[in-house]
Design a protein around this nucleic acid. Structure first.
Ligand SMILES: [Mn+2]
Ligand SMILES: [Mn+2]
Length: 623
DNA sequence: GGCCTCA
DNA sequence: TGAGGCCAACGCGCA
DNA sequence: TGCGCG
């Protein structure tokens, strides 16, 4: 390996890292640099052939032979890089702060020559003896037998320099060095804030959304205590942490003493000790100087707790976590569905778990599946529940999903590529997609076999701050008009705020026809409710009106399936209705994941005859 | 949620 | 190993 | 010529 890669990654007019430089012959040197970049790691470098063979060691080297430290081999660095310390400016490769942790000379074990070292490098096994200030004695670097070619392990041999105690390299780093790294990361963002009064606060962390810091009386401290918010962003879990904000040495600090929620599990009922054990784990993992775990309950003056192992608590807390992360497997013939994180709360307020969602879909699968048959699906995935952001997915990678999953390749003109849409024709697939975080099920209105031929025309009633009784009145008007045209239509709640009217049609139209038909029906409805409905697309022009959305009738558009749960408060369901249920008292909130089973039992499947009906729109228009 | 990439 | 990124996109009315 | 929309 030459230095080509090294030079290619850097712009030497912008970084002070060395361009080159050759090693001298006599002895070989090594250096370990602490590199506080996007993620803190240590770079382990050995001089060979006049350059520095380099490994990035995420957790840094250890003097404890029990530790196997992952070391990812990276490009060779010039010899002079071993002397480099300082800042790599933002925007450059490896931006952050570099400091030399240790340096010295090294030799190959068994009086090997440099050639032996090169052979060892090639063969994936290096045995060396370091002679540094901190790192002394024998080490082995062994290439892992994984598919990842660059993964090595750095292991201390047992010798007089080895330690048996837990070895944490960061304990050997001076405060000043650590601070420099943190300051660099912080610098770009925001200027220092003046000192403020200490205050109690709750911190809300999350996997994807911003950390929130709210005072006891509801004031948002997030901008006032930005460094704390940024520090807490390192907590890669949903958590509600109780603590106290103070200013010390002109630095804001957050002393934390209780954990109220973790991974969307409300744990306030849990033992205080267990909660504290979980909090301790969380804060230890975060390992941030501004966030300090406090053993005590609200104390006036907390003394900093040295991180110490409390074995009993450790085990306890792990057990607790294990209880919260249950997995299960379902088998349908040869199809095996892995269901994960079943106790995760998808509705944190209502405390409804992913497992309950999956159970609901199992219960209604025989009713929902006929409506999904052969329809391409757009996935709206909420892997962290309804309170966290979701993302959409259409294209599935056949390589990365079980082979029994059915997909339909459909060509997209706009992106000029083929998209493998999910098709859900059985319960196994339904549970598989729900497990991926699909709270709602969104099928097309046409089959993948004839994507341009809609099987339904849909009138979507979208109320914007309109009394639901008016929505009911509008739906009844639509029903009356459709009756006059001899059209058989079906109705359901959207599961959100509105109603969906579905008109199954003969498979002989294109979307322009169904769209224009619904547009026409919409216009007639509008004539009868000119003050409460609107056909305008611009939301500004339909304030406090019911939007008669006919534009849903287009290729690629989706609408929530009947019996689909919606990612909304209360775990509401899009519920098929009988037309005579359209009367005062009806609400969309009344149908939830909890009562649909009972309703199906009492009323049966109100949409079961949907596929027997094939309306003729042309005939209807002539009536 | 799961997979890939990068250090 | 561990963190971060990625995972959609129709076409039409309007400024 | 681009943005917003569901
Ligand atoms: Mn580095
Ligand atoms: Mn709607």
């Amino acid at each position: 390996m030459s230095l080509e890669k090294y030079k290619q990654k850097r712009d030497f007019s912008k970084t002070e890292e060395p361009v080159g430089g050759k090693g001298k012959r006599k002895t070989l040197s090594f250096v370990v640099q602490r590199h506080h970049a996007t993620s803190l790691h240590y770079d382990f470098r050995l001089e060979m052939e006049g350059v520095l063979k380099s490994w990035a060691v995420p957790k840094g080297p250890s003097l404890n032979p029990a530790d196997k430290r992952l070391a990812m081999m990276v490009e060779d660095h010039p010899f002079d890089y071993g002397k480099f310390e300082g800042e790599i400016p933002a925007g450059n490769y490896g931006a952050g702060v570099v400091s030399i942790f240790d340096a010295g000379t090294y030799t190959a074990l068994d009086k090997g020559t440099e050639n032996d070292l090169l052979k060892g490098l090639h063969d994936g096994s290096l045995k060396i003896k370091l002679n540094g200030k901190i790192l002394k004695g024998e080490f082995a670097l062994v290439r892992m037998k994984t598919s990842e070619q660059n993964a090595w392990l750095l292991i201390k041999h047992k010798d007089e320099y080895a330690v048996t105690k837990k070895f944490n390299i960061e304990d050997l780093v001076s405060k000043e060095v650590k601070k420099k790294g943190l300051d660099f990361k912080r610098k770009k963002k925001e200027p220092r804030k003046p000192e403020v009064e200490p205050d109690d606060a709750l911190a809300y962390t999350s996997v994807k959304t911003k950390v929130k810091l709210i005072s006891r009386n509801g004031i948002d401290f997030s901008s006032r205590y930005k460094p704390i918010v940024e520090a807490l962003a390192g907590i890669k879990a949903e958590a509600v942490i109780d603590g106290e904000l103070v200013i010390e040495d002109a630095l804001p600090k957050f002393y934390v003493f209780d954990l109220l929620s973790l991974n969307n599990h409300d744990i306030r009922d849990m033992d205080l000790l267990k909660r504290k054990a979980l909090l301790f784990e969380l804060i230890k993992k975060l390992d941030h100087p501004l966030i300090i775990y406090s053993k005590h309950e609200r104390a006036d003056k907390e003394e900093e707790d040295v991180v110490q192992e409390q074995e009993g608590e450790e085990i306890e807390s792990r057990k607790e976590t294990a209880v919260m992360e249950t997995d299960r497997e379902e088998q349908y013939g040869k199809k095996i569905v892995k269901l994960t994180n079943l106790n995760k709360l998808y509705w944190p307020v209502e405390k409804i778990s992913k497992g309950q969602l999956i159970d609901y879909y199992k219960g209604v699968s025989e009713y929902i599946l006929p409506h999904l048959k052969d329809k391409p699906l757009s996935l709206n995935r909420h892997p962290n529940g309804i309170a966290e952001p979701s993302f959409f997915q259409k294209d599935l990678d056949r390589e990365k999903i079980p082979s029994w999953i059915k997909t339909a390749p459909l060509y997209s003109d706009s992106t000029e590529k083929t998209i493998d849409y999910l098709v859900c024709n059985d319960e196994a697939t339904l549970l598989w997609m729900v497990n991926l975080g699909c709270i709602e099920i969104n099928p097309w209105l046409s089959s993948y076999k004839k994507p341009e031929v809609p099987l339904f025309a849909v009138l979507d009633l979208d109320p914007h701050d309109v009394d639901f009784n008016e929505v009911i009145a509008v739906a009844k008007t639509a029903k009356m008009l459709l009756d006059q045209m001899n059209i058989t239509a079906f109705i359901k709640t959207s599961g959100s705020k509105g109603l969906h009217i579905f008109i199954p049609v003969s498979p002989i139209y294109d979307y322009d026809i169904t769209k224009e038909f619904i547009h026409y029906v919409g216009q007639m409805v509008f004539e009868r409710h000119p003050n409460t409905t609107s056909l305008e697309r611009s939301p500004a022009k339909r304030k406090e009106r019911i939007y008669l959305d006919f534009l849903q009738n287009r290729v690629g558009q989706t609408i929530a399936a009947p019996y689909s749960v919606r990612p909304k408060p209360g775990a509401t369901v899009s519920a098929p209705l009988a037309w005579d249920e359209l009367k005062a008292g009806l609400t969309t909130k009344g149908f939830t994941l909890f009562n649909m089973g009972q309703r199906l039992h009492e009323r049966g499947d109100l949409w079961k005859d949907m596929h027997l009906v094939k309306n003729n729109l042309k005939k209807a228009l002539t009536l």
